[in-house]
């Protein structure tokens, strides 16, 4: 199933407390991608309710999850605000 890369943030939370090893705070959200809901972090903006609101337009963006010992970089995805 192909999903659009741009959608609407229909829910979010700013996680301030998480399991050990997970950097906080971060913004997690549920994005409506053309009628299909997908989970993802809201990235490339401050994890703060002043910068994130439900109903805002967001688009797919990638970020580095880091390199392993063999030098392979893993790429994660999130959603950033559409300016």
């Amino acid at each position: 199933m192909r999903l659009p890369v741009e959608g609407v943030l229909k829910a979010f939370t700013i996680v301030s407390m998480a399991a050990p090893g997970i950097p906080v705070p971060f913004a997690a959200g549920v994005i409506d991608l053309g009628g299909t809901s997908a989970p993802g972090n809201v990235i490339n903006t401050e994890p703060d309710p002043r910068h994130i609101q439900v109903g805002m337009k967001v688009r797919l963006a990638t970020f580095s999850l880091g390199e392993d010992s063999a030098g392979t970089e893993a790429i994660g995805f999130g959603f950033e605000p559409v300016p």
Partner: peptide, 26 residues
């Protein structure tokens, strides 16, 4: 390639249920 919690949204209960309330508001 890695656990999803914190990388693709949140799996902890306070965050999951926060989103449920926020979606109602949306």
């Amino acid at each position: 390639v890695a656990p999803l919690d914190g990388r693709v949204g949140t799996e902890t209960m306070p965050g999951v249920f926060a989103q449920i309330g926020m979606e109602y508001g949306y």
